[in-house]
Write a protein that binds this DNA or RNA. Structure first.
Lengths: 221, 221
DNA sequence: GCAAAAGTGTTTACGGTACACCCATGC
DNA sequence: GCATGGGTGTACCGTAAACACTTTTGC
């Protein structure tokens, strides 16, 4: 019984990326694969995912959600293995903190538009994860898990545009998002990185979201 | 490695019900539980669910969808068991075809508002399944899987009302549903069962739905 | 003819969408 | 002062929601 994780990260330049490891051992030695591994006794599924992620990639997964269980006979050439797949969302600020170890020879982010060939049925798992995140970001505020704690509004818009793979009207998007009342404007302003007007920084107010959620508000982009 | 199934059925009088078996053996002997059992070698997860369902309850599951995998250590008192839970939707006409066998001492439908105490963590599984179906019926035409092939419009409305647990405006519902263009009106008319005007019978046009789906229409109630 | 359930349109309000110009900064 | 990216408001249209009376049957 194994767990695998599709870890998503976001950076302004590269867009949405997935974390892959290069396998040290057979089968698929030297091939790219999802981080993951076998479940220990007396360990919950989620704990196993967090452990494997930290062991293989050095990443501490913040947001973690079960995706689907893949169990076709033959999906692992060695023996029958069920894999419970999870997806994780990592904040931009942690995007770079990677270190390969245990059964990973290398760790690397790959933009979702340029994935390499993957071991096992991991291509299918990644596709399912992308579909899930794409659908979910429209009715749950999970996008914030991919940004820093405070972020310029334009980053949020770029993230949605990248994930939904279509242009977004800046004014309508801001209107809608601000009307939800779950963004706090901070006093800070982004230090300008080159050209253009510096942007105000916002923060996602999770408490307020949960409060409004209870009152029947629904997030919908 | 086990599979469990939350089978939903619908009848005008009892509303939405779940199929439970009475366990023949320990643990939880004589307790009510979800139909399910251990995975055979070289059998897909879905095949295992269908096999167990037929063995224990005599029901051939038509619509089947993976729900969630439950794997907390301690959820089965005997040993560590992962359970991949599925939910199934059974047409009204098959509602009555039940026969207990193998490790089931009895099989019975229970309305979702009046469930007995359940073995293992099956209460949690049922809750997750109800939540999923409730959410899903609003944006996918899965309601038809719970009705007969042809059905009076009012039945569809009652089903939605029962699942969403709120009254539905008949005129708006009909307008919206018919506007989708996925219902065919048959020539038949329901034989009146007692009082009231007999109703026209409709049929869900799955082909047309898939066609429209491809063209970007979206089902939304 | 009356009780019970099916069938059917119109009006109003709100939210989605389209759309363009000004502002602050770096160079 | 110009290039670059950030920030902001209005008008229209379409769909969601509210709302009640007529029709067909059994008894």
């Amino acid at each position: 019984m194994a767990v695998d994780a599709v870890v998503f990260g976001y950076a302004k330049t590269e867009g949405v990326s997935v974390l892959l490891i290069r396998r040290k051992y057979a089968p698929f030695q030297e091939g790219w694969a999802l981080p993951g591994g076998f479940l220990h006794d007396d360990e919950s599924l989620e704990a196993a995912v967090r452990r494997e992620l930290e062991e293989e990639t050095g990443i501490r997964a913040p947001y973690l959600e079960q995706l689907y269980t893949f169990g076709d006979p033959g999906r692992d050439p060695r023996q029958r293995v069920l894999s419970v797949a999870y997806f994780a969302l990592v904040k931009s600020s942690r995007f770079q903190e990677l270190k390969a170890s245990t059964d990973a020879a290398d760790v690397q982010w790959f933009p979702i538009g340029a994935l390499p060939k993957l071991a096992f049925d991991h291509k299918e798992i990644v596709s399912a994860a992308i579909a899930r995140v794409r659908a979910k970001i429209r009715y749950q505020p999970i996008g914030f898990e991919l940004l820093d704690k405070t972020f310029p509004f334009a980053d949020l818009e770029r993230l949605y545009s990248a994930l939904l793979d279509r242009p977004i009207d800046r004014r309508n998007f801001a209107k809608k998002m601000l009307a939800l009342g779950i963004l706090d404007e901070t006093q800070e302003v982004a230090k300008s990185e080159g050209k253009g007007r510096p942007s105000k920084l916002f923060r996602f107010n999770k408490k307020r979201y949960e409060q409004l959620q209870k009152e029947g508000m629904n997030f919908e982009i």
